[in-house]
């Protein structure tokens, strides 16, 4: 009797479970097809381009040319400086902003959220040219600075590193704030109240409770910002004014000026490898920090 009850209808139920599993896997199919055709296949094509000569032989000549060119390393340095700078500014500006959003009432937070998201809804070209108007020699800021007598000469704010950085931070800030805000909003308000009741100042509470608990959100926001900005093109192209040449700009130049498809492809693979290495390092570091005993 008991032996029977254990297997009653088991085969049918197992079949139902399998059907259900197949259905949920099939939901991912359209995106798998698109990613496959749109991203994975071109990647192989680029890899092939970077390794092939005009006659079709396999060669590393594109890579040796790339790695022995001083401009490559200079553009890598500029890229890392821009990404690091953007990340730093996002941390400094974004963490307090996310904290503010997370600590106001849901009503106020959703209103402020619209302001945060507004830049995301505007075309990057429009925003970047907007910054040009504000930052250039006879732009809004320099008019104010010179007009008020604070400086005698217009400050160079655009067509340089500063301008590029401002544009990039503006673009990335909402993207950084979203995961950070989500992590902070999930912190139980009573936990923060408990810390305060035990005598913690807001700053101490922020350092010992809020930051560690929001670490996951801040880390993923940071990785997104850093990795995303490694391939930035439009902002440095417009606000850098030809003086700032991160990797994306150099790839474009290799293609449009030198018509060197092999070289550009090799550069692309080079960038991809850097992203991969940095991504893996960041993930590893995050895991290391999280597994550290937190009591101390």
């Amino acid at each position: 009797m008991t032996a029977m009850t254990a297997t009653v209808n088991a085969a049918g139920l197992r079949r139902d479970a399998a059907t259900e599993r197949r259905f949920f896997l099939s939901l991912a199919l359209p995106s798998l097809v698109i990613v496959g055709i749109g991203a994975i296949l071109p990647l192989f094509w680029i890899l092939q381009q970077s390794l092939a000569t005009a006659r079709g032989d396999i060669t590393l000549v594109n890579y040796t040319a790339l790695l022995t060119n001083g401009l490559t390393w200079r553009s890598l340095l500029v890229t890392l400086e821009l990404s690091g700078g953007t990340l730093l500014c996002c941390l400094v500006l974004g963490i307090p902003l996310a904290f503010l959003l997370a600590s106001t009432s849901p009503r106020t937070a959703s209103r402020l959220m619209v302001l945060v998201l507004l830049p995301l809804w505007t075309s990057i070209l429009v925003r970047t040219y907007g910054w040009l108007v504000i930052l250039r020699r006879d732009g809004l800021i320099n008019d104010l600075l010179v007009g008020s007598g604070l400086v005698s000469e217009p400050v160079p704010l655009v067509y340089n590193f500063t301008g590029t950085l401002i544009g990039m931070v503006h673009y990335m800030l909402p993207i950084f704030v979203l995961p950070t805000y989500a992590a902070m909003r999930d912190i139980d308000g009573n936990v923060i109240r408990a810390a305060a009741s035990m005598g913690a100042s807001l700053w101490h509470c922020f350092r010992t409770v809020i930051l560690p608990l929001a670490f996951g959100g801040i880390a993923s926001g940071s990785v997104i910002v850093f990795v995303y900005t490694l391939g930035f093109f439009i902002t440095p192209a417009i606000l850098g004014g030809g003086r700032i040449s991160p990797i994306a700009i150099r790839i474009d130049r290799t293609l449009s000026t030198l018509q060197d498809w092999g070289g550009a492809a090799a550069f692309g693979v080079f960038l991809l490898l850097i992203v991969a290495v940095l991504g893996v390092t960041a993930l590893g570091a995050a895991r290391l920090i999280r597994s550290k005993p937190a009591a101390d």
């Binding site: 936990v191 109240r193 810390a195 409770v209 560690p212 608990l213 937190a294 009591a295």
Partner: peptide, 10 residues
């Protein structure tokens, strides 16, 4: 309202 990132002693 315990601190989830700390041990009991913490």
């Amino acid at each position: 309202a315990l601190f989830p990132h700390m041990s009991v002693l913490g």
